[in-house]
Design a protein around this nucleic acid. Structure first.
Length: 202
DNA sequence: ACCGCGATAGCCT
DNA sequence: GGCTATCGCGGTA
């Protein structure tokens, strides 16, 4: 399990360091593991795409201001959740949106959660689509409002651990779904593992 | 593969 | 009352 100090850094740095790490989720008596392959950083002080811009405080976004290492889960578009890892220290509003995960085990279980199909009916593209989007991964890994504020450095239900030792290139590009954010639209704050098949978008 | 569009409810002003 | 850090579908190619 990554310790609390790991999260106490700039959201852009944390977003890159989270690539290749493994999200561990205990649910339904299973231990689900998935490699983080795509992330985005958000920084309330300078980023019009961030919920907290320009360092405003509302009830919903309070987790953003907490010490790094907790989860910020919010509800979006009337039906979905997004899962963020809070970075930095108390008082700074910043975090990392987890956008895509490569499932590492329990594929059958994940398929039934997402599509209500078994492994025998699944095609290659179904497996790729299990968690190739911020809300898709919340459905697959059972992350919702009850995980809001969850400490990722304590407890067994939800945490992040070191991944396999491997080398990869990181692609840095613009973020998704924030066209309204004026100049922040062009910030290259989306990161993914080059060549990985489980990312949401090139 | 890519493009357009509707669903849907909590949050904020 | 007007958004929204999305998804999945149906149409066209």
């Amino acid at each position: 399990m990554l310790e609390k100090d790991f999260y106490k850094k700039d959201a852009r740095e944390l977003a890159k360091e989270l690539l290749g790490k493994v999200l561990v989720r205990k649910v339904d008596g299973k231990v689900l593991r998935g490699k983080i392959v795509e992330t985005e950083s958000y920084i309330g002080a300078i980023d019009k795409a961030c919920h907290a811009y320009p360092n405003k405080v509302t009830e919903r976004i309070k987790p953003l201001y907490e010490d790094g290492g907790i989860a910020y889960v919010y509800f979006i578009y009337g039906k979905y959740f997004c899962f963020n890892v809070i970075s930095g220290s108390k008082g700074t509003a910043e975090g990392v949106l987890i956008r895509a995960i490569e499932p590492l085990n329990e594929i059958d279980y994940l398929l039934s959660k997402r599509f209500n199909i078994g492994i025998e009916k699944a095609k290659e593209k179904d497996i790729r689509a299990i968690a190739n989007g911020p809300s898709k991964l919340c459905i697959a890994y059972n992350i919702s409002k009850s995980e809001n504020y969850h400490k990722l450095y304590e407890g067994e239900e939800l945490y992040i651990e070191e991944g396999e030792r491997e080398s990869f290139n990181i692609v840095e590009t613009t973020r998704i779904g924030i066209d309204y954010a004026e100049e922040a639209r062009d910030f290259p704050w989306r990161y993914y593992i080059e060549g990985n098949k489980y990312i949401s978008k090139k």
